[in-house]
Design a protein around this nucleic acid. Structure first.
Length: 427
RNA sequence: GGAGAGGUGGCCGAGUGGUUGAAGGCGCACGCUUGGAAAGCGUGUUUACGGGAAACUGUAACGAGGGUUCGAAUCCCUCCCUCUCCGCCA
């Protein structure tokens, strides 16, 4: 959600920048709606001021024992006009609010202009893809063959785009979760949070998933509860409608949660393996900052996610998303892409975004320093990392000629083993 | 799920239809006082939106939404949340 005053003052500049991300803002329409809103509001407020003073007058006259019938009738008529005007203001306001809420965030200054993912800019590359002495396999072959991953039974139990992990497969997922949480809490200044996995509509509005993206979510039938598509939703909303102590910022939270996405509109994409599932596990990083801190914090956040890949010895690259490829609420986004030998490609494993005040305005998250005014906080989040895709990266990057998987040093203490054999056993 | 109690400003806590945006207290800020401090005294201390260069000013907000009324924190309805007891349960 945009700030109305800023929006009004910089309408043309904002419209130009939004055009960079493929969004057309009807400037004239906006101006007209704004003028209508102001006119109705002003008139209603003037009438209310009159009603207030005359009602008070009635009180005084009654105390003095005088007749007030005439005045009461007059004020009643004013009340009727106010009711009509209020209705008008409400309608315009709602139209205006919906209009504003459907406009995506304005890209930050350092974001390159572009139309699609092809225009994203690689800004860093770490590690070199391993040279295999044999033809590397994809995880959807390796996993089932080792007996640690099962798609067919998952389809029976639930349906397509679900998986069941067995034995060392399940343990590997759990080890990764613990490894990531430990790393972020011990070395990157994060506080671990275990939030609800179901949230209400207000929370989804706060982070920007509603009203536009309801189709991407799973909804409970009899309750205003939705399955979270990411821990970003419950964790960011922890501080909804709060004023944070500006001097105590940044606030850094990390959370492990399962994530549930309908993946509407992605039919036919990534149908093999566990790259794109209706349920996946993720460790999420969520930060709250003052406006002056958020871009430095985006670097820290992204580096925290990168540290996971580096400690696991997984080659990756960092790209900055161009204006046309960014998410609705984001002002700037870095994607981390890990090398997947089985697919011979870099695949997204983390997305780190600075939302500036876009979410904070929707969610009412403010910051106030001892010597400062109350202002909207900036919020950021990023995957640190998507656990399922990290699982895939390890299995594919560390696969051995015999069909087993060597474990990265950093993970061995968590599994108390050095490898997973081709028979699926930890050794 | 059943029964009951309750939700007021940064905090505690008054207030059951009229000059109450809200007494009183605490906290905080500034000033006076003091050799310095404490005490004391004084002043100030919410947010959003509109108008104004500013001083200032209008409207709204006492869990949320709706209703009654000339007028609602106060009366009525619906919902949400918290607490206590009972039931059930990982």
């Amino acid at each position: 959600m945009h700030d109305l005053a800023t929006f009004r003052a910089n309408l043309d500049a904002i419209a130009a920048r939004l055009a960079d991300r493929g969004f057309t803002l009807d400037v004239e329409d906006f101006r007209q709606l704004d003028a209508r809103r102001r006119a109705a509001l002003t008139e209603a407020e003037q009438l209310k001021a009159q009603r207030n003073s005359e009602s008070q007058e009635i009180g005084k006259l009654k105390k003095a024992g005088q007749d007030t019938a005439g005045l009461q009738a007059k004020v009643r008529a004013i009340g009727d006009r106010i009711a009509a005007l209020d209705e008008q203001v409400k309608t315009i306001d709602e139209e205006f609010r919906q209009h504003l809420a459907s406009i995506p965030n304005v890209p930050g200054e350092s974001v390159p202009a572009g139309r699609s993912a092809d225009d994203n800019v690689e800004i860093k590359k770490w590690g070199a893809p391993r040279e295999f002495a044999f033809e590397p396999k994809a995880h959807w072959d390796l996993g089932p063959r080792m007996g640690i991953l099962d798609f067919e039974r998952a389809a029976k139990v639930t349906g397509a785009r679900f998986a069941i992990y067995f034995g060392a497969g399940a343990k590997l997922e759990r080890a990764l979760i613990n490894f990531m949480l430990d790393l972020h809490t011990r070395e990157h200044g994060y506080t671990e949070v275990l939030p609800p996995f179901l949230v209400n509509s207000a929370s989804l509005f706060g982070t920007g998933q509603l009203p536009k993206f309801a189709d991407d979510l799973f909804k409970c039938e009899k309750f205003d509860f939705w399955l979270i598509p990411t821990a970003e939703v419950p964790v960011t909303n922890i501080h909804r409608d709060e004023t944070l102590d500006g001097d105590a910022l940044p606030l850094r939270y990390c959370a492990y949660t399962p994530c549930f996405r309908s993946e509407a509109g992605s039919y036919g994409r990534d149908v093999r393996g566990i790259i794109r599932q209706h349920q996946f596990q993720k460790v999420e990083l969520v930060n709250f900052t003052r406006p002056d801190q958020s871009y430095a914090e985006l670097e820290h956040l992204t580096e925290s996610a990168e540290a996971v890949l580096e400690k696991l010895g997984l080659p990756y690259r960092r790209v900055v998303l161009c204006t046309g490829d960014m998410g609705f609420s984001s002002a700037k986004t870095y994607d981390l892409e890990v090398w997947m030998p089985g697919q011979n490609a870099y695949r997204e494993i983390s997305s780190c975004s600075n939302f500036e005040a876009f979410q904070a305005r929707r969610a009412g998250i403010r910051a106030k320093s001892a010597k400062g005014k109350s202002e909207y906080a900036h919020t950021l989040n990023g995957s640190g990392l998507a656990v399922g895709r990290t699982w895939v990266a390890i299995v594919e990057n560390y696969q051995q000629a015999d069909g087993g998987v060597l474990l990265p040093e950093a993970l061995r203490p968590y599994l108390n083993a050095e490898s997973i054999g081709s028979d699926g056993q930890l050794r």
